[in-house]
Design a binder for these strands. Sequence first.
RNA 1: GCGAGAGUGGCGGAACUGGUAGACGCACUGGACUUAGGAUCCAGCCCACUUCGGUGGAUGGGGGUUCAACUCCCCCCUCUCGCACCA
Length: 830
Amino acid sequence: MASAEHIKYTFNAIEKKWQKKWHSEKTFSVTEDPDRKKYYLLEMFPYPSGRIHMGHVRNYTIGDVIGRYKRMQGYNVLHPMGWDAFGLPAENAAIKHNTHPATWTFENIDYMRQQLMRMGFSYDWDRELTTCDPDYYRWEQLFFIKLHEKGLVYQKVTTVNWCETCQTVLANEQVINDSCWRCDNLVLPQKMKGWFFKITDYAEELLAECENLKGWPEKVLTMQRNWIGKSIGAEIDFPVKGSDKSLKIFTTRPDTIFGATFMSIAPEHPLVNDLCRGKGQEQAVHDFVQQTIIRKQRQKPDEEIDKEGVFTGSFCINPYTGDELPVYAANFVLMEYGTGAVMAVPAHDQRDYEFAKKYDIPIKGVIQPEGQNLNSDTIEEAYEGPGTLVNSGNFSGMASDPAKTAITSYAEQKGFGKKQITFRLRDWGVSRQRYWGTPIPMLHCDKCGVQPVPEKDLPITLPTDVQFDETGKSPLHSMEEFYKTTCPVCGGEARRETDTFDTFVESSWYFARYASPDYQAGPLESKAVSYWLPVDQYIGGVEHAILHLLYARFFTKIMRDLGYISIGEPFENLLTQGMVIKDGAKMSKSKGNVVDPSELVEHYGADTVRLFSLFAAPPERDLEWSDQGVEGAYRFLTRVFRYVMDKSVTFANHNMEIPKELNEASRALHRKTHQTIRKVSTDLKNDFHFNTAISAIMELVNMLFAQAGGEAQESVEPAVVKEAVKAILLLLSPMAPHICEELWERTGHSVPIADTPWPEFDPEAAKDEELTIVLQVNGKVRSRLQVAPDTAEDVLKEKAVADEKIQKFTEDKPIRKIIVVPKKLINIVV
RNA sequence: GCGAGAGUGGCGGAACUGGUAGACGCACUGGACUUAGGAUCCAGCCCACUUCGGUGGAUGGGGGUUCAACUCCCCCCUCUCGCACCA
C-alpha cells in the first residue's frame, strides 16, 4: 500500500513537468508529411488585451481536446496559435499609461502566452505569429497593391460611420444598433474619403457557396445569407415630368407597377434639389431634409419612427400607364440601398400604405389574391402576397411570378429598365484613422494622383518613435517623416496615406499564413498551403458569425484569384461555442462576475479547469460557470489519481494477459471498459459532446471503486482492472492531459500517452450478456425481464405473458396485441 | 415585426432512427472512518399517496397521431440570439 504522501495529487508539479517536456521536446511541432493524413485545427486567435478570460479557456480547451484526439488517431495535426495584435485598445492604453502601443501589446502577449502554456494546450509554438509584425503585415500590403491593380480596391467619399470616442470610421458590420461595437457610443454619419474592398463583386459567390458549407451551423449560414441580402427585381426609369431627367428605382415587385400612385425618394437623394426647384417647395423640402437627418442621428436604436414625407413639387411619369405620380421625399427611404428611390404601391406594400393614408394619396389594387376580393377603397392593410394581376393593361390576368418577368422584359425592350439584382452587402471600408494598424500602402501625388507604393518599397513599416496626445488622434497624420515621400511616377513630392487598415484585414488571412509562417519569398508557400489548407475544424464564438467569417471567406477567394491558393472556402467545419455565463449573465467587469482562469489554475490545476469547462455543457451551448462544479471536477481527478496510484506498483511490474475464463465481476468490468471506449469515441467523433464522454468515463471509474469496495464480492482479475485503467487514461488524456501522462508513466509506460494510439473497442467484449426487456401493459411499465440477447421473439412473448406482475394486469382481459421491440421492450395491449 | 434556437428535478445537464424520462456531476440528507472534517468512502435523493409490495402524476400550456411521444403534427405562452423601414 502506497503511503499517503506518495498518492497525493500534486497537480502543480505534474502539470509543469509535462508542459516543460512538451515544450522542450517540441511534441506538437509539425511539418508537412504527404504520407500522413493532415488535420488542420484552428481556434480564433485572441486579441492580446492583457489576460486570457474564461471564454478563451473554453474555446481553446475544446480545440485542444479535438487536436489531441485527432493526433492519437494518427492524423498529422496542425494546431497553431498567434496574436491579433493591432487594434485600438493598445492606443488607448498607451495614452492612459504613457507607454507605447507596441510595448503594451508585447507585454500582454508575453503574459498571455505563458497563461496559455500553463493550460497545457498542444500548440505548435514554432508557428506563432503576431499580426503587428512587419513580417506579417507586409504581405497584407502586397495583397492590397495587387488588388488595386485588379480594380478590387478603390477610394471613394462616402458617408461613413464615425465614432467620436474612437476617433475612427467603422465598417457597417461594426455598427451595432447605431452604436460602436467596441465602445458602445452612438455612431455619427460623416463624409469621408476612404479605401474600400470590392467585396460586393464576390457577393454572389459568397452567397452561393453557403450551400456547400455543410460543416457550418445553419444559424451562422442564415446570418451570412441575410447579411448578403440578395434581392432579384428590376430597375425602372421614371421620367420626371417637364424635365429631361428621370428617376431610377429598384423594385422586387415589378408585377405591382400598375398600382404605383406616388414615388418616394431618400432625403439624401442627389435629385432632391432639382425636383423641388422652382416649384415653391424648396423651403418645405429643405426643412424636411434637415430635420430628418438630424432626427436620424438622435434616433434611439429600437425606436420605430413614423413615416413622414414632403411633396417635392415634381411628378414622374409611370412608363407603363402614363400616370403622373407625385414625388415625395420620405424619411423611410434609404439612400444606401437600391437606387435611393422607390415606386410606391400602397395597395401592396405596407409602408407605402401607411404613407398614402397619412397624406391622402390614392390606393390602387392591382393584385387579386386567390379566393378573395380585394377592394382598394376599404382595405386596412396592404396585401403583400402573390395573386392575379388586375387593372394592369396587357398584363392583367397573369400570375405575379410570370408577370414580374414579363413586365421587366417589356421595360428592357423599350429601353427604360432592366432586370436587376441588388445586394444588401456593401463594399468593405477598410480605412481607419488610427495609428496602431497596418499602414495602407498608397500615396498621393499632386501631379500624378493616387499611386500604389511600388512592390519593391514594401513593407511600409509603422514608425515606432511616436508621441501620443490626449485627443486620441493618430500621430501619423502629423508626422512628417512618415508621410513625406516621393512619387514613384514623377519623382516629385508626394504624401503617403496616413490611414491604417481595419484590423479585420489581419484576421482575414492569418489561417493561411500559419501554413508557412516564416516564409520570406511571399505571403504563402504553395507547397505548405496546398498541404494544410483548408482548415478542417475552426472554433470560435458566434459573435464573429458575420464580421470575421465573412471577411475570411472573401479573402480566401481573393487569395485564390491572385493565384496563391487553390481553395475557395477557408473553413471546412465550424464550431461556434457558447458564451461563459456566471449568475445568469455574460462575464464582464461591469457586472463583477468574472472568474480569473489563472486563479483557478493556481488552486485546482489546469486539468481541473479544462475538465470542468468541458463537462458543464456541450460546446455549442452557453456554459453556466459554477465554483462548486469545478470542485466536483477536481474531486474526480483526485479520485482517478488515488485509485491508479494505489494500483501502480502492480501494474508497472506485470504485463498481464486477460485470461479466457473470467468470473462475473471481471466480465462486467471488461464489458464496461469496452462500452466506455465505444461511447467516448462516438461522442468525440460525432458532435464533440465532451460532457457525455466525461460522464461515461466517470461511470467506469465509479465501477472500479464499487468493485474495490465491497468485501463480499468476488475478486476482479488484475489484468481486467489494468485494462480498465489504461482505457480511462487514454480516453481522458485529451481532456486532462497532464494527469493522464503522469499516471501513464507511473504505471510503467515509456511511450507518452500523446504518442499512443487511441484505443479501439472490441465489439465482442462490449456486447451485453443479458438484456433488460421492459414489459408494458397498455404502454405502462409493469415489469422487467432479464434475457439472453439472442432470445427468440416467441420465447420472449411467452415469458412476458407468463410474468407474474404482468398477469396481475392482464388477467380476465383478452390480449389484443403484443408489440415486440427487439432488445428493448414488449407492450401487451389488452 | 421577421428569422433561428431553446424550455426536462433545487441546479448544470442526459435520453441513439418514437420504445425503461432524469445518465453523469453539483447541492442536499443519512451513515461509516475520525481528536476533528469543509478530506475520504457508502447509501438516499422528481412529486404525491402508500398496508413499503406498490399505485398515480410529471419533460412550458392545450389539443392531435400512435400499442407507445421529451422526441412527430397543430395552436398558444416564455426566454435567448440575430436582423430590423432592404422597396
